[in-house]
Design a protein around this nucleic acid. Structure first.
Length: 547
RNA sequence: CGGGGUGUGGCUCAGCUUGGUAGAGCGCACGGUUCGGGACCGUGAGGCCGGCGGUUCAAAUCCGCCCACCCCGACCA
């Protein structure tokens, strides 16, 4: 036995599965409770400070438990589940097939929702003339410092065995940090009359922001996203568009990701550079921080004025075009991980899982295989439409496969061995709860499994919602606010009155690290006084420390 | 930018104090035995010890310079 062993997982309360299936009670199969599985400890990795983990002998197969170091757990998990890896270019990541599968499912679902709401996809180039960025003052301020700039074309030998840039460009380009400028340049050429409006375009693309502190998926220098850019004949329609998209984002987060979000708008300090209003969906992570999961901006006429985009109204007058832009990025994957996953690995909600069910046959001897494999083939065929994978790799033990597929977040696992077949049943294990149940062979398996997947989807959302509600506080004084917030780390959402000024917001941020995450419109809104200055406040706003 | 730390096989690290030309675990390959919660035994592959220079008969080890990365703070969001 190794010394300094520690529990890998907290002991879950046994829960009853809210489904009509038989439980493992009375089953001839051993269904070990998590307690009976030898506890393991985590072996620290990727740390070179040599102080934290160096002297401890730890299990190299486990990931860092959340309770020990949440951010370490996160980066461990992303790498061990093979979602992404660090690239040789600092601050950039390689999205591996498992991560890309998640993104593709996110993309496909959202793309369908955009199409349903009347949008079309297009593609604008990655390189943008530097002078374009200069045209909108707030936009410049927001992005100038984090633009990558292309200044040369071609390479030549540098005389020391390497290469150096050769031809200096007459006018440099920026790598798009977002595409408002180039798109509004083009809209200027496409829009003459109100009959050309609205334009409802989306693009799926990569963008580049030269961030100094990066984290896989949450903040990287290059990331994938979608950016919608719409043009309208009046402000009301544009605001309605921004809100339509906000609702699309909310539905997507809650129905597909099973992540509850608050919706509302941002304070002046937090809004998008160039926007009149920034609407957002804001989620809570397991470590009780806020994470901005999507934004939808009403841009007013800011970009139309900057790029001189006018149109003829129905009344034959000239007006500047009204705009929106909106986006979600691969950061959603980070939010998804931090909402549901656990010390065993990823937990992927069924609707976003590439593989929804994995079948692990337990049969080594030929005579066992002869009994088990025909049933496995039946399962494969019957569940094909759901997204099923059969893991019949003869070189790995069943226990290894269980752990591996749990690490990867497959929502449901079917275990089937000779004893199952002879008992006329199979064993189902839920990834989210760890619970095992048995199901008779020969029934409506597809229906039963589909139903269970929906149940998991609903349970994940309910659990995340309950967690968020537990960590939703109100503070009536600044002292109370600070007390709830604690010294550091996440402390949930705190609803408090604020006088509406950026000065006060800045002071709160400097003194506590918390920012205004979202200003909601709620039925129970009532006026009060700012917890810091005592000035009048129309409603409480939501504060939190954030990612 | 300031302070601290670490660079040794794919990964995590030991070896350095007291110089003698490199080790462990995990992973990987092969063979055998295994398979209902990360199997076991055996065999094997894989490292110019971050770079350059110095001291020395001899440097992973001592000295100097450089580079990279990590942590804390600052800054930014």
């Amino acid at each position: 036995m190794r010394d300094q062993r520690r529990r890998l997982t907290p002991t879950p309360e046994p829960t009853q599965l809210a489904t009509p299936y038989a439980t493992s009670e009375g089953s001839p199969l051993p269904t070990p409770h998590l307690d009976e599985i030898a506890p393991r400890v985590y072996n620290g990795r990727s740390q070179r400070d040599g102080s934290l983990m160096a002297k401890e002998k730890r299990d190299e197969k486990a990931i860092c438990p959340r309770g020990e170091d949440y951010s370490r757990w996160y980066t461990d998990l992303v790498q061990r589940a093979e979602l992404a890896d660090y690239s040789p270019v600092p601050g950039c990541m390689v999205i591996r097939p498992n991560g890309m599968a998640l993104w593709e499912n996110i993309r496909d679902a959202l793309d369908g929702m955009f199409r349903e709401t009347g949008h079309q996809n297009a593609y604008f180039p990655m390189l943008i003339p530097v002078e374009f960025l200069a045209k909108e003052a707030a936009h410049v301020e927001g992005f100038a410092m984090e633009c990558g700039v292309v200044t040369h074309s071609g390479l030549e030998p540098d005389g020391e065995g390497g290469l150096r840039p050769k031809g200096k460009l007459d006018s440099p380009f920026i790598l798009r940090p977002t595409s408002e400028t180039i798109i509004w340049h083009m809209y200027g050429q496409w829009i003459q009359s109100y009959r050309d409006l609205p334009i409802l375009i989306n693009q799926w693309a990569n963008v580049m922001r030269w961030e100094m502190r990066t984290r896989l998926f949450l903040r990287t220098r290059e990331f994938l996203w979608q950016e919608g850019h719409t043009a309208h004949a009046n402000g009301e329609e544009a605001v309605a568009e921004a809100l339509t998209i906000l609702e699309v984002y909310r539905r997507f987060a809650e129905d597909y990701m099973a992540v509850p979000v608050l919706t509302g708008y941002k304070s002046e300090a937090e809004k998008f550079a160039g926007a009149v209003t920034t609407y957002c969906i804001e989620a809570m992570t397991q470590d009780k921080r806020a994470i901005q999961a999507g934004t939808s901006h009403y841009l007013g006429q800011n970009f139309a004025k900057a790029f001189d985009v006018t149109f003829q109204t129905e009344a034959n007058e000239r007006d500047y075009v009204y705009a929106t832009s909106w986006g979600v990025s691969t950061r959603l994957i980070g939010a998804l991980i931090m909402a549901h996953s656990d010390d065993k690995g990823l937990v992927i909600p069924p609707r976003l899982a590439r593989t929804k069910v994995v079948v692990v046959p337990i049969a080594r001897k030929d005579e066992d295989k002869a009994v088990v494999m025909p049933v496995v083939e039946q399962l494969r065929a019957e569940l094909k439409s759901l997204g099923v994978k059969v893991d019949d790799d003869p070189n790995r033990s069943p226990g290894f496969k269980f752990a591996e597929h749990e690490l990867r977040g497959v929502p449901l696992r079917i275990e089937i061995g000779r004893r199952d077949v002879e008992a006329g049943q199979l064993t189902l294990a839920r990834r989210d709860t760890g619970e095992k149940v048995t199901l008779p062979l020969g029934g409506d398996l597809l229906g039963a499994v589909s139903e269970l997947l929906e149940q998991i989807q609903a349970d994940l959302f309910a659990k995340a919602l309950a967690f968020r509600d537990e960590n939703m506080h109100t503070a009536d004084s600044y002292d109370e606010f600070k007390q709830i917030l604690g010294a550091e780390g996440g402390a949930g959402f705190i609803r408090a009155h604020w006088d509406g000024t950026s000065e006060t917001e800045k002071r709160i941020q400097e003194e506590t690290g918390a920012t205004i995450r979202v200003i909601q419109a709620r039925d129970d809104d009532e006026p009060g006084v700012c917890m810091v200055t005592g000035a009048p406040s129309a409603r409480r706003v939501v504060f939190a420390r954030s990612y």
